[in-house]
Amino acid sequence: MTFKEKSQKVTVKFIEFDIYGSTAQGTKTVLTIEGADYEKLKTTHYHWIDWPDRRVPPADGAILELLEKARVSK
């Protein structure tokens, strides 16, 4: 996807998508962002899909699994 932000062209490219989880369902999406005057940046987005609406998830280690994945991705 390419769009303009304050007269500069910004490009966002989809790189990777993965579903993970042993106790909780989540997704990992990897994108690169490139602007006219900027170096190419890589970002990883984690999304906890089955987080309960209006409650907190059970304390079953799922949050530790998500933290482990985020720490490794730097």
Rank of each mutant, 00 (worst) to 15 (best):
M1P: 11
T2R: 04
T2C: 02
T2A: 04
T2E: 08
F3T: 02
F3M: 01
K4W: 05
K4A: 04
E5L: 12
E5I: 07
E5C: 05
E5K: 12
K6G: 08
K6H: 11
K6Y: 09
K6W: 10
K6Q: 15
S7T: 09
S7G: 09
Q8V: 08
Q8D: 14
K9F: 04
K9S: 13
K9R: 11
K9C: 00
V10S: 01
V10E: 03
T11K: 14
T11C: 04
T11E: 13
T11L: 06
V12A: 01
V12M: 03
V12E: 01
K13T: 12
K13W: 01
F14A: 10
F14G: 02
F14L: 12
I15N: 12
I15P: 00
I15G: 00
E16H: 12
E16F: 10
F17V: 01
D18E: 15
D18G: 00
I19C: 06
I19W: 09
I19M: 10
I19P: 00
Y20S: 05
G21C: 05
G21W: 03
G21N: 01
G21Q: 03
T23F: 01
T23S: 05
Q25N: 09
G26I: 01
T27W: 06
T29S: 13
T29R: 11
V30P: 02
V30S: 02
V30N: 03
L31I: 09
T32E: 14
I33R: 13
E34M: 11
E34P: 01
G35F: 01
G35L: 02
A36T: 15
D37W: 05
D37E: 12
Y38H: 06
Y38G: 07
Y38A: 13
E39F: 04
K40V: 14
K40W: 06
K40T: 14
K40G: 02
L41G: 00
K42Q: 14
K42V: 10
K42I: 07
K42H: 00
T43A: 11
T44E: 14
H45G: 00
H45L: 14
H45S: 10
H45E: 10
Y46E: 04
Y46P: 05
H47A: 12
W48S: 02
I49S: 10
I49Y: 09
I49W: 04
W51I: 04
W51P: 00
P52I: 02
P52N: 03
D53H: 12
D53F: 13
R54W: 09
R54P: 00
V56W: 06
V56N: 08
P57N: 10
P57Y: 13
A59D: 15
A59Y: 09
D60F: 07
D60H: 07
D60W: 05
G61D: 05
A62I: 03
I63C: 05
I63N: 05
I63F: 09
L64K: 12
L64Q: 11
E65P: 01
E65I: 06
E65G: 08
L66M: 13
L66V: 06
L67D: 10
E68L: 11
K69N: 11
A70S: 14
A70Y: 09
A70P: 00
A70R: 11
R71A: 08
R71C: 06
V72R: 15
V72L: 13
S73P: 03
S73V: 11
S73L: 07
S73D: 15
K74P: 00
K74M: 06
